[in-house]
Design a binder for these strands. Structure first.
Length: 491
RNA sequence: GCCAGGGUAGCUCAAUGGUGGAGCACAGCAUUCAUAACGCUGCGGUUGUGGGUCCGAUCCCCACCCCUGGUACCA
């Protein structure tokens, strides 16, 4: 691999992102930072952003009595602020309302249409007003919504453009089967294979609201009776949103950038978005004659104190809420170490505190403090910073990171921290003659044949805890080392 | 209802068809370079329930219970 292009889900702007969304951004950030170390900064592109069109955003804006454009800007800005608070190192924060994006969406639409995959038809759906959602007949129980059995199901008809999704059924099944790494974890691929069997065409335009990218004007020669009025048709949000991954690396606008980074190496997304990424997106790309992404990484959800994060439960926590109290790296650390990326995980502020004190204050912070003080007391003079060998930690965690085992990778780093603490207790540099003590300390700071050093730990931590890594490197860059403030004061 | 994932020490998770592991928390010892921190030792489990296959199952099979997600066009 010579380049790495990673994208996150773009967050829908009906509300500002919370810790659950942040979890995914942190994971993506770790992968991006890792690859920047191995491939070089210029060979990594990290895209994130906001998804801003659609009925739900339009409604949310109406509720606040402001124009959609203003509303989505407000949420997008606050999403960006949330991400920035965690030091998410994106290369572009895309908004689907960005001008270049509309151009790309239209281009994809036209390509798909040119390929014969767009047709006009009548959408008829069984709509439940309680769920504000459509149901397929098979899912209705005695003709009623399974969630709201007391409400009447309404039959809603709409004239729309449809995408020939079903045409790509065999292609999709084949692609997933032939590429076992396409969807991770594997059980998600199984899920998609099941679903793929029943793929039907879907409407990719809407006419009952206006907040979206208009369907491009049609060729006169193309017209046929009963087709929707184009000017009133808005492109369906998913058809619009998925395309951001192309816009983000300069499709149309910056051919060089696009040629360098496409196809995406990893799309990371929540399990709720899997179908669209695993089945619709590849079908769209195939239809448009564009190469498919290499991997889809599905992250689980976070629960807080055993409950799912939701407005109605009232347990929504924003990244900034915790960052203000504990710092960005503490939040990153906790979410990375004590969750399983691909499964649901339960988190709590209490556990964050436990991890903070046990691992950051007592572990890493204390190690840095004791080593710094020992170096200061011994007047250690560093003549070099690194051993002439590859960073042992990076070597060890490479396969873990490439297999998306972020928590295991971080655990490994903490193993090295423990190793240094054990070494210090065993060697007792504070009881040794100056020369002997300095040899021990130099082993601790820059390493030896047998010992993984503090500087190696710091280098590895750049991937996970960038602020902390920088502080440690600043303190141990020599030649003189002096003790400083605790990195993580006990709470 | 249907599909999928999960239920292992107080907590978070690991593991294997053959006498159940780690970290945190807790207790004791030791120690002072350090953020009452670090280290060592210990405590701690009839591996959701009931059956079955097997010489032997936590791991395989069946049923059930509980939790989670998806269930098609609302991100």
């Amino acid at each position: 691999m010579s380049k790495f292009y990673i994208t996150t889900a773009i967050d829908y702007v009906n509300d500002t992102i919370h810790l659950g969304h942040a979890f995914q951004k942190i994971a993506a950030d770790v992968l991006a930072r890792y690859h920047r170390i191995t491939l070089g900064k210029d060979n990594v592109f990290f895209l994130t952003g906001t998804d801003e069109y659609g009925q739900k955003a339009e409604k949310a804006a109406k509720l606040e009595n402001i124009p959609p454009k203003e509303f989505v800007k407000k949420i997008s800005d606050s999403d960006q602020k949330e991400q920035d608070s965690l030091n998410i190192s994106y290369n572009r924060f895309i908004r689907t309302t960005d001008l270049d994006h509309a151009e790309v969406v239209k281009e994809i639409w036209n390509r798909v249409q040119k390929n014969g995959d767009v047709y006009s038809g009548e959408y008829q759906g069984s709509y439940c007003e309680g769920c504000e959602a459509y149901y397929v007949k098979e899912d209705l129980i005695k003709g009623k919504c399974p969630v709201h059995p007391t409400l009447e199901i309404k039959i809603v008809k709409e004239q729309n453009y449809f995408f020939k999704w079903s045409k790509y059924k065999d292609f999709l099944i084949d692609h997933i089967k032939k590429n076992p790494d396409f969807i991770y974890p594997a059980h998600r691929a199984k899920e998609m294979l099941e679903f793929a069997k029943n793929i039907k065409d879907i409407p990719i335009s809407r006419s009952n609201f206006t907040w979206g990218i208009p369907v491009p004007a049609r060729n006169a020669s193309h017209s046929d009776a009963g087709e929707p009025e184009d000017s009133k048709q808005i492109i369906y949000v998913w058809f619009d949103a998925l395309v951001n991954y192309l816009t983000g690396v300069g499709f149309l606008k910056d051919k060089e950038l696009f040629a360098k980074f496409w196809p995406a190496d990893v799309h990371i997304l929540g399990k709720d978005n899997l179908r669209w990424h695993a089945l619709l997106w590849p079908a769209m790309l195939k239809s448009a004659g564009i190469e498919l992404p290499k991997a889809i990484l599905v992250n689980g959800f976070l629960n807080i104190n055993g409950q799912k994060i939701s407005k109605s439960v009232g347990n929504v926590i924003r990244p900034t809420d915790w960052v203000k109290k504990y710092g960005a790296d503490a939040v990153r650390y906790y979410l990375l170490r004590y969750t399983n990326l691909t499964d649901d995980s339960d988190i709590s502020e209490e556990k964050l505190l436990q991890a903070y004190n046990a691992d950051l204050a007592n572990g890493l912070g204390n190690l840095v403090a004791r080593v710094a003080k020992l170096c200061e007391n011994n007047n250690l003079n560093l003549t070099k910073l690194k051993q002439d060998r590859p960073n042992q930690i990076l070597e060890e965690i490479k396969p873990l990171l490439e297999g998306f085992k972020l928590n295991d990778a971080l655990s490994y780093v903490w193993g090295s921290i423990k190793g240094l603490d054990q070494y210090i207790n065993r060697e007792r540099p504070w009881q040794k003659e100056l020369i002997e003590a300095n040899k021990i300390l130099s082993n601790i700071v820059i390493g030896s044949e047998a010992l993984t050093s503090l500087n190696e730990i710091a280098e590895a931590l750049k991937i996970f805890l960038p602020e902390t890594a920088e502080k440690i490197e600043g303190q141990f860059c020599g030649p003189k080392i002096i003790s400083g403030k605790p990195l993580f004061p006990r709470i």
